Simulated scan of single mutants.
Amino acid sequence: MDLQAVVQLIGNVGFPIALSLILLQTILIKFNKQMDGLEKRLAQLDKTMKLMVKTYHQSTSKSAIRQDKKEDG
Rank of each mutant, 00 (worst) to 15 (best):
K50D: 06
L24D: 10
A5G: 02
L19R: 15
L28I: 10
M35I: 02
R66W: 07
M1L: 15
L45Q: 05
D36S: 08
G11Q: 04
K47C: 03
S59N: 14
K33N: 11
I22W: 00
N12G: 04
K70A: 12
R41V: 04
S61E: 13
Q4E: 09
D36V: 03
F15P: 00
Q44D: 13
A5I: 07
M1W: 08
M49N: 13
E71V: 12
Q34A: 12
Q44K: 10
K47M: 01
L45P: 01
V53R: 06
R66Q: 12
D36E: 09
Q4D: 08
I10F: 05
I10V: 15
L21W: 11
T48K: 08
L28E: 06
L23S: 03
L28W: 04
I27Q: 11
I27F: 06
D46R: 10
A18F: 03
L28S: 09
I17A: 14
N32H: 09
V13D: 08
R41I: 01
T48C: 06
D2T: 10
V7F: 09
G14K: 05
A64Q: 14
Q4A: 10
V13M: 06
L45V: 04
F15A: 07
L42K: 01
H57V: 08
E71G: 03
I27A: 08
S20N: 14
A64K: 15
G11D: 05
L9D: 04
F15M: 02
Q44A: 14
K47L: 02
L9E: 06
Q44L: 13
N32Y: 02
K30R: 13
L42W: 07
M1P: 09
S61V: 07
E39C: 05
I17W: 00
K50Y: 01
Q8V: 06
K30G: 01
Q34M: 12
S63N: 15
I10S: 00
Y56I: 07
N32K: 12
G37K: 06
S20L: 09
D46K: 11
L45E: 09
A43M: 03
T48D: 15
L51P: 01
Y56V: 00
K54D: 08
T55D: 12
G11P: 01
M35L: 02
E39N: 11
L23W: 02
L24W: 06
